[in-house]
Amino acid sequence: MASLPGPERATSLSGRNTGDRVYRGALTLLALTLPAALIAILGGLLWNAWPSVRTFGLEFLFRSTWDPVAEVYGAAPMILGTVISSLLALLIAVPLALGVAIFLTEFSPGWLRKPVASLVELLAAIPSVVYGLWGVFVLIPLLRSHVVPPLRAALGWLPFFEGVFYGNSMLAAGIILSIMILPYISSVSREVLLAVPPAQREAALALGATRWEAVWSAVLPYGHLGIIGAVVLGLGRALGETMAVTMLIGNRHEISASLLQPGYTMAAAIANEFAEATTQLHLAALFEIGLVLFGVTVTVNAAARLLVWRVARGSAVGSRAL
């Protein structure tokens, strides 16, 4: 929240005549919609998830059976799958996004800055379902023919690369997620790096540091909180991403150490089963998954905002994706 310079409008505009009061009242009502919506989301989730919360208690989070026939539900595979696919996405996206951000702020020639930044941000404009379509028909065949065979030849002895690769897998979902969150991480990190005072790098250069040493020892340490915030923000995006993951991860209620095997995420489970849930308890279990997902993303996002706010201005991050 950038503080207002000069006299505060709040005092200068609080009205005394009728028109002013009506105006302010109407705007207040509209602003009230947001907290009301949040309460409605949370209330709806809690209310509808309650049968499941009461029946399964905390065990819901740790059980790995999901059996609509026996009416036993546990979300462990989805929770674990959400975490693994998101971490895999971060593992790929963070170095790339930071590289892009550093390139754009420190090394790029001026004329290249805007086009490259726009192209990378354009990734955020591609709809999730289009990523899914591309993943199914382009990425998975590519993985099958060119990536997985050499990967197994080199690292096949690791438990992460065991088993037969059918296509839909944790690996495919993680890769598509990494492409999807890259623009968010890179644009926020870029804003953070731009907020680092020029004196910081000039001082390092004046002391005889090379350009990279100036970045590494003066710029990055100054902006590290904001960069962590950018990464956490990317994590928040990855955790809640639905369509592309649903189309690529294989949607199987099992826990496997191998990235080549299918998995499941919380968002994918809701997308797949919600419309087809037959019993009240099945629906309640899906609501509880929604509740967990909502809780996790709210926490992660709040943490990210606090970190980014410390460094860059409190602008609405991600809303300038186009």
């Binding site: 928040g236 993303t297 709210v298 992660v300 990210a304 609405a316």
Partner: peptide, 8 residues
């Protein structure tokens, strides 16, 4: 709300 998953 901006960070809330669209599925929610």
């Amino acid at each position: 709300l901006n960070g809330t998953p669209s599925i929610v």
